[in-house]
Design a protein around this nucleic acid. Structure first.
Length: 512
RNA sequence: CGGGCGGUGGCGCAGUGGUAGCGCACGCGGUUUGGGACCGUGAGGUCGCGGGUUCGAAUCCCGCUCGCCCGACCA
């Protein structure tokens, strides 16, 4: 069969149409699909398995830092949202509102909300849970002895988005939201920063996504927060993706919900709260960080299948039996070994497709290691393996493979992070003058502007108006103020005024 | 939510007024099998939904819906 043959499931190349590539990849890798409800997605088993692996890695870390999981209601009384003025302003425009409790048949036979069942107080489908959790926390916290209160919940939330994309922005998405209460600012701040570090570690070590750790500007921070930290990643189209956020909520929600405690010296004291979250958006981030024109590429730490075994001949019962017997000891050994805290997951592809077809199938799904076992290998006690990330096929013995594969997976995991970091650095510039800044962000080919630009580290005067003007002109925003960068003594790259005192170069980019 | 484009079998598409077809995928039989096999034979579609025009609508008109792209908004 000629290799030039065009298959219906061949992906549009990233260079040709980046968003078409993304959409097709999500489909052919069987990660998710659109549902009958606008803007909502069905996460398919393979995509959900990835989410479960992310969940497991993060949940471990959340518990290791002393938090407990709990669950709060999907519905929030409308009045709760109003208790924090900035918060309600931030979310009012994208809330699903429940107004009735039952349906009835209209004269024409269609179902309509029963007017008699109108709710006395309308319920909001949670866009986030600060308020409903705050109401509980106010009752849970009595004394300084109850602090810190460290809670997390895994949940779905709904934000009525106008423009959606699978995983990156859907009306309903899955996430975890941590909510904590502290005795003072310092402890809340310590918590906020600690969880930010947990997110950095998750992103880099588990997802192999290099991130910039930083603080949001006033304009970009969470509605209701005192300040917001974030991790920002660069996708292959060089746009920024906010991959996680951690908020020091100050006393804003404590005030709104009466979260107070009696201090050691018996003074009724207003508490401090935090919240932090990452979502199924991370899956979009993984896709856009690592995958190529052949399909999905998964970091081994979250791959539902680490190793796929492709028997070269297995159609006849006696052939299959021979391969099964040959593989049995190998599968046993692999099962007993773990990578990133999870047993090596192996799948043998017994389907009667031809080997080449199987290769393409598993390539699309991003399985890190592909093993081939044919008659020649079996005679010699060997097998052949190849990596999704490329390189030559390797021949090794069946008995050595189980040990080798751990190193191979670790190498792949590390290699993905390094490759992504190199890509990001290659598309990051320190710029000091506006002309260069404009040139960097102005598409050379307006027909496909998505493959231009990247990150600019540039000075900022600190003025929100300046930030807004840049966004207006170039659709570029300040993604974050990096935390571990030295103060910058130069000028604002946008307006030429002196950079704000103590501020480092900030990260400017187009974003998702 | 505004502007543009689109929705025909699982996927990709053809079909401009006469009752629906192609490629891939799928079922069965056989020959095959180290990077997308071939032959034979089958199955599968209320043409997004609802109304209208017409003797007759996938096709023309209206409304709605969903998707994609561009804006505004956002994890």
């Amino acid at each position: 069969m000629a290799k030039t043959k065009t298959h219906a499931d061949a992906l549009t190349a990233r260079e040709v149409d980046y968003s078409a590539w993304y959409n097709e990849l999500v489909e052919v890798a069987a990660l998710a699909e659109h549902s009958a409800v606008r803007g909502c997605m069905v996460i398919r088993p393979y995509g959900y398995a990835i989410w479960e692996n992310i969940q497991r890695a993060l949940d471990e870390r959340i518990k290791a830092t002393g938090h407990s999981n709990a669950y709060f209601p999907l519905f929030i009384p409308k009045s709760f949202l109003q208790k924090e003025a900035n918060h309600v302003d931030g979310f009012a425009m994208e809330c699903a509102v429940v107004t009735h409790s039952r349906l009835k048949k209209a004269p024409d036979g269609t179902l309509v909300p029963d007017p008699d069942s109108a709710l006395a107080e309308e319920l909001i489908v949670r866009p986030t849970s600060e308020t409903i959790i705050g109401e509980s926390f106010a009752r849970w916290v009595k004394s300084y002895r109850d602090l810190p209160l460290l809670i997390n919940q895994w949940a779905n939330v709904v934000r009525w988005e106008m423009r959606t994309r699978l995983f990156l922005r859907t009306m309903e998405f899955l996430w975890q939201e941590g909510h904590t209460v502290h005795a003072d600012y310092e402890d809340a701040e310590r918590e906020t920063r600690q969880m930010l570090e947990v997110y950095r570690e998750l992103a880099e070590e588990v997802l192999a996504i290099p991130v910039i750790v930083g603080k949001k500007t006033e304009r970009e921070k969470f509605a209701g927060a005192m300040h917001t930290y974030c991790i920002e990643a660069m996708m292959q189209d060089r746009k920024a993706l906010q991959a996680g956020t951690s908020h020091n909520l100050g006393q804003n929600f404590a005030r709104g919900f009466g979260i107070t405690y009696q201090s050691k010296d018996q003074v009724e004291t207003l508490a401090w709260t935090t919240s932090w979250g990452v979502s199924t958006r991370l899956i979009g981030g993984v896709i856009m960080t690592h995958s190529d024109d052949q399909g999905l590429v998964l970091p081994p730490a979250i791959a539902p299948v680490h190793v796929v075994v492709i028997p070269i001949r297995c159609a006849k019962p006696e052939e299959r039996a021979a391969v099964e017997a040959y593989l049995a000891p190998l599968l046993e050994k692999l099962k007993a070994r773990a990578f990133a805290g999870r047993a090596i997951a192996v799948q043998v592809d017994w389907s009667d497709a031809r080997p080449g077809a199987k290769h393409f199938e598993w390539e699309k799904r991003g399985v890190p290691v592909r093993v081939e076992v044919g008659p020649r290998d079996m005679e010699q006690g060997k097998l052949v393996y190849a990596l999704r990330t490329g390189g030559e096929k390797t021949t090794t013995t069946r008995d050595a493979f189980a040990d080798e594969v751990l190193d191979v997976l670790a190498r792949v995991q590390r290699g993905l992070l390094e490759r992504a970091r190199a890509f990001r650095d290659e598309h990051t510039r320190d710029l000091d003058d506006r002309a260069a800044f404009d040139a960097f962000f102005t598409p050379k080919n307006p027909e496909k502007p998505e493959l231009h630009g990247g990150f600019v580290r540039g000075g900022w005067c600190g003025d929100a108006g300046c930030e807004a003007a840049v966004k207006e002109a170039l659709k570029v925003t300040i993604r974050c103020i990096p935390l571990d960068a030295p103060a910058f003594a130069g000028a604002c790259v946008a307006c030429g005024q002196p950079s704000a005192a103590g501020l480092p170069r900030v990260v400017w980019a187009k974003s998702y």
